[in-house]
Design a protein around this nucleic acid. Structure first.
Lengths: 202, 202
DNA sequence: ATCACATGTTAACGATGTTCACATCTAATC
DNA sequence: GATTAGATGTGAACATCGTTAACATGTGAT
């Protein structure tokens, strides 16, 4: 049983994940546009070209990051759902608020998730993460059959997702409530979700 | 009255607009990410650096393009509204459909409009265009006082905009209805808008 | 005709994504 | 335990990008 300790001076060991962390930090501090392969490499303490041993190109790295971000959002939604023990409507309200709150707190992540042109949106793991997220949204506000096709959305379900996603997008990239702080925006989201209720009732 | 014909071999004449047209064409054909100052210049038939006589930097050019795109969308919405002579609800339905249809037909434009990080979102003309668009959305589905603050949205108005904007975004950058064609997506939008009606009634 | 000024060009700079030949380490085999 | 194939990181180089500065050319007013 040879337990040779690996020499980490040359071989990093977890470069793939470290690059994701670097994207995370740079995107958080300076925005997605500032995310550069060279900047990531410098942050990790490694040469720029090393990224290509783990990612085919920059777009693949951004895809992996988007996948991670979507899963983080899905985690937040799952937690929000479990914390409320109420009606379907109340559950959806909590999940929707978690969605908007995530966008408010991590705008760069939210942007990175939905950039068709800068990610490989057909990547296996990306699609899986998106499906998982869609599943929570459906579950969130109405009891559905679990094994239903995640791509099949009823008009009502799509309305729910669209309104939540739209508000988040308008907050992050649009001209809505630019002069309002975090709490005020959450209150706005809360009001919008309450107004949505009549359309989700059946 | 000297009417000397200007020599257009050197001085172009309408470079600022021509650059916008170039962005238009390149974005349409290859997407926003492919829009490059040099590519635009080559398309116009002019040197790369000439852009800087008319735009402070690339971001300013993209801001001007986003402004134009927003105004085009607002035009489409205005036309849609005038073509239906019905209830407020019917008017909103038509305006909402025009919004989604624009995003479907010109995805690159729709993306360019709402990219906080690649445009100067506080630019005077950009803000004016966004206000105009917001105005049509408010007018579209409910008779409001004209001179109201365009930034003040009621929960209901915001719900209307969010759901329409959200669906458009999910179509363009999200995982929704990837396997559907244009007409099917419009039908989906139509159904969603019908489902939204109960929440807009008062 | 002159001249201030707006508009376009050329050449160069640093930064970026990417590649390729090479260096270094790991792990399985003999 | 030495060998070696393969995985992982490096360094130098390339084309392309946004941007700048010095220069060239045309326009319009005086």
């Amino acid at each position: 049983m040879s337990m040779k300790k690996p020499d980490h001076s040359y071989h990093h060991g977890h470069l793939a994940e470290s690059f994701l962390d670097a994207v995370d930090e740079i995107a958080t501090q300076f925005g997605i546009e500032a995310v550069t392969l060279r900047a990531c490499a410098k942050r990790v303490g490694v040469s720029p070209s090393s990224a290509f041993r783990h990612y085919a190109d920059k777009r693949a790295l951004l895809t992996a990051f988007a996948t991670r971000a979507i899963n983080q959002l899905a985690d937040a939604m799952e937690q929000a759902k479990q914390e409320v023990q109420g009606t379907d409507m109340e559950a959806f309200h909590a999940v929707g608020l978690a969605y908007v709150t995530f966008a408010l707190d991590r705008p760069a992540f939210f942007r990175a998730m939905w950039r068709e042109e800068t990610i490989y949106s057909h990547d296996e793991r990306y699609v899986a993460a998106a499906d998982r997220l869609a599943g929570y949204l459906k579950e969130g506000f109405v009891s559905t059959i679990r094994d239903e096709d995640p791509h099949a959305f009823s008009a009502t379900e799509l309305l729910a997702w669209s309104s939540v996603h739209g508000l988040a997008s308008l907050f992050v990239d649009g001209p809505v409530a630019r002069d309002r702080n975090r709490e005020e925006r959450i209150a706005i989201a809360d009001a919008m979700l309450r107004g949505l209720a009549p359309a989700l009732d059946r």
